[in-house]
Design a protein around this nucleic acid. Structure first.
Lengths: 235, 235
DNA sequence: CCAAAAGTGTTATAGCTACACCCATGT
DNA sequence: ACATGGGTGTAGCTATAACACTTTTGG
């Protein structure tokens, strides 16, 4: 409770606004190289501040929904997609995040599957961009995406979130492509394969992926839990 | 924006209240066994809801301070201590956390050093308790502490936060006691020692700790960064 | 001398890395 | 036949765990 009420700007007197935003990652084939790369959807700001700049999907928190539900809702509203993974990222509450009023943003991050991501609608005000080529975003959203990428790269190494990017069956090479896209480096196919075979919750199916001009690879299935909640306090 | 305005309780119409809470860990010798154990300070609720139950230190967010500053402030106010480590834990925003009004709590966790923790004042309304013997706390605070403990146990294994519990110089056995207290299991002194010697940011001093009835152990110093921000988006 | 913790050495094992090699398919 | 990725084998290295052993102090 500041004593100098008269000196404090009106802005500082209002209670901070509470908003939810979401960083949504999908793996899409790069139009040039054809290898999968990380993409995410942005929305165009139609109002000040930062009008016409691109920003993360988000909005205010409705009084009757949980934080996670709010994130899932604004994901649904902007992309039409269901997340296969959704987790809280961080609460950003710096004093100067927005030039108008103070905003505390609770940010979630999500992964969506490629078959879904293919259907994602792009409109005048919704655009998908490569995660490594965002341009300048509104507010502190560049920094937020940086942090989300950092978390994704960490988490892919010690958890099973990679399967949130894949369909119900997949080849081991596709899993490797996910890791390579996220980590940005090549992995030894032989060793990677062995590691996966050693984990109990990846089981082989009887099917093979036809169509390549080489020996058809076996398809596998992930039987572990959705991992949706790992690292969340509810788990 | 619900259509059924008439059906929604008044509670659901107000904007959620935003609060900051902090889980503060210190290592104190157990009065019985003498080995260090985890303790944390609680404050007594003097108002409804949950009047007279114990709760985590916390309070509303002032308009002119960052989230982290607010956490540091309520740590200072309730215990008189400076944290040697302070990091955001999670934002809790479930609908039924408080029976009166909806509250979104951004929770931080902190570690304090033992020399500080020794000075910590206990009053009628502030009490330190063992982390494994909390009793029933107000709101969802038991669950929050559980999660903070989980994070602490994880983080102690892959980062250097253990030194946040120690003074400027320490013996390697003291470091081991920190790990043992946090992880709740015994560690092999010989192997643990070698691991520490192999890390670059622990350097030996010329001094030895006298007073034990055995060979005096050498004192060491931690030269790495405060690690205050690791895992935070600002880092 | 003895107890107790500090500190060093040694061996077995598990996991990872690099890379050679064979297998099955489409063209 | 041959190019291409799928899939297997294997030797070397590194980290760790288990535990025997020596060292230095106080009593």
């Amino acid at each position: 409770m500041p004593i100098y009420s008269a000196n404090v700007s009106e802005r500082a007197q209002q209670p901070p606004e509470l908003a939810i935003s979401t960083v949504i990652f999908a793996l899409r084939p790069d139009p040039e190289a054809g290898v999968p790369t990380l993409w995410l959807p942005l929305v165009r700001r139609t109002r000040q501040p930062f009008r016409d700049l691109w920003a993360l999907p988000g909005g205010p928190l409705s009084p009757d929904e949980s934080l996670q539900d709010a994130a899932a809702r604004n994901l649904q509203e902007t992309t039409g997609l269901q997340p296969s993974y959704l987790e809280q990222l961080y609460a950003f509450g710096g004093l100067d995040r927005s030039p108008v009023q103070r905003v505390v943003s609770i940010v979630y991050w999500a992964l969506v599957k490629p078959d879904e991501a293919a259907l994602a609608r792009e409109t005048e005000n919704v655009r998908w961009v490569r995660a490594d080529d965002l341009g300048q975003l509104a507010f502190d959203h560049n920094r937020i995406v940086e942090y989300a990428l950092w978390r994704l790269r960490n988490k892919v190494e010690y958890s099973s979130i990679a399967y949130a990017f894949l369909g119900s069956t997949f080849t081991l090479a596709q899993v490797r492509e996910v890791y390579e896209a996220v980590l940005g480096k090549q992995l030894d196919p032989a060793n990677f394969r062995r590691q996966l075979r050693a984990t109990p919750d990846i089981e082989p199916t009887d099917e093979y992926l036809q169509g390549g001009r080489h020996r058809p690879p076996r398809l596998y299935r992930y039987t572990g839990s959705a991992a949706q909640l790992s690292g969340s306090p509810s788990a």
